[in-house]
Simulated scan of single mutants.
Amino acid sequence: MSPPLQPLFAQRVARLRTHMAETGLDAWLVFAPEHLRYLFNYSGEAACGLIGTRGSWLVTDYRFIEQAEEECMHHEWRRGVATELLCRDRQRERLGQVLRRLLADIGAARLGYEAGHVSVAQWTEISADLHDFDLLPATDFLVQARRVKDAWEQQQMRQAAALADAALEALRPDIRLGQSERQMATRLEQLLQSLGSEGLSFPTILGFGPRSALPHSAPSDRPLQRGDLVVLDFGAVVNGYRSDMTRSHVAGPALPWQQRMYDTVSRAQQAALALLKPGISGSVLSEASSSVLAASEFAAHAGPGLGHGVGLVLHEQPFMNSGCASVLRAGEVVTVEPGLYIRGQGGVRIEDDALLLDTGHEILSRAHRDFELPL
């Protein structure tokens, strides 16, 4: 794993500290795995982070301390970030007791915590130990900060998309009639990891025939039959950053209605992509795409929503639908994925990752779009 350069981490922490000062916080308690990765480069489990006005701490236990030392203390960026690692003895000291000691040492009184990323049971125990501190649910500052990817993050996402492209291309010779959804998904996942993906961006979505109309179809033992519509949605991971791509096919020659369905979804995607640039809102993009679907013979089968942001989390802001007033900015990566789903017959979805540039966008997922599989 290759972490970003030290200045990038220092800049992220500095921006958070500026926000803390503006909102009157002395410290910020981090629980979200994506924020532990974003601020500390930590990819393990059972940890929380604390950002103070001058220092930062990562608290974990014996199972992950060596991993934390490797990831969080990288010699190229350790200086200036001042992360101290604490190995908590879970048998003798509660997490709240560790935090209480740290907060007392740095003279903190007002603590922001990620309320959406800690269980009620865990926070009840922690807050009991911190009863005399001012505990405030944190804002979504880090969620919003992660939306715009820096140059290093953009490169990770290009690589993740390229790995997914390569895996799909390698899968093509293995696709055959009689193969089950589960067999095809397993083979694709093997290819992803053999090509260098850290794992799966999310559990592979794959449906044949009528099951392709399930937007999030989990692979089953259903075999591929001639004439089936096929929807395949998957992604790779590079340094924690994810890709997300969907391709739709038909097993053999397409029937006229299947081809019209595919062409409709393709036009809907292109209508949104033609407008995709900084300064446009998610609702405008969603309307451009949905208007194409609504004007088609398949209007009753259109899936709502157009896409979402992607990065360290598969589904992150902005969520592009009719109610999305959020304006896109250069550096964001979003999916554009209109779909049609006819219950009992099949579905079609086409999805690509797009990076917002200063004057337009760059499509990151470049895998083939052949509709008909030569089976």
Rank of each mutant, 00 (worst) to 15 (best):
Q156H: 14
Q155T: 11
Q190K: 12
A161N: 06
Q144H: 13
L171N: 01
Q179N: 12
L192W: 07
Q159L: 09
Q179R: 08
L142H: 03
Q183S: 10
L163A: 02
Q193L: 14
A166P: 00
Q183T: 13
G178Y: 02
Q144T: 15
Q156P: 05
L177T: 06
M157D: 03
L171P: 02
M184C: 13
D174R: 12
Q179M: 14
L192Y: 01
R182G: 10
D165Y: 03
E181R: 14
V143A: 15
L200C: 00
L192P: 10
Q193D: 05
Q183N: 15
Q179Y: 03
Q155R: 04
S197D: 06
A164P: 11
A145T: 07
L163V: 10
L171C: 04
D174H: 11
G199K: 11
L200I: 05
R187T: 01
A160V: 12
L142P: 15
L195R: 10
L192Q: 02
Q154Y: 05
D165I: 01
W152M: 04
G199F: 00
R158G: 00
A185V: 09
L171E: 00
Q155L: 03
S180W: 08
R176W: 11
T186N: 10
L188C: 04
Q190P: 03
L195F: 06
R187M: 05
L192D: 00
L168V: 10
R146F: 13
R182S: 10
R182V: 08
L163M: 02
A167W: 01
Q144L: 13
V143D: 15
L163R: 12
Q193I: 09
F141W: 05
Q179W: 08
F141P: 14
R187F: 06
A160K: 04
A170M: 05
S180C: 13
R172Y: 01
R187C: 11
A162L: 10
E169H: 11
A166R: 09
R182D: 09
E153T: 12
F141V: 12
R158F: 06
Q156V: 14
A170L: 04
V148E: 09
E169L: 06
T186F: 14
Q193W: 03
I175D: 04
A151L: 13
R147K: 10
M157E: 06
A151G: 07
G199E: 08
E153F: 05
Q183H: 06
E189D: 12
A162N: 08
D174T: 07
S180Y: 01
A164F: 10
Q183D: 09
V148H: 04
E198S: 00
P173H: 11
E198P: 01
R176F: 02
Q183G: 13
R147I: 09
R172L: 00
L191H: 05
M184Y: 10
R158I: 00
L200H: 12
D165C: 00
R182H: 14
G178N: 02
M184F: 10
A145W: 15
A170V: 06
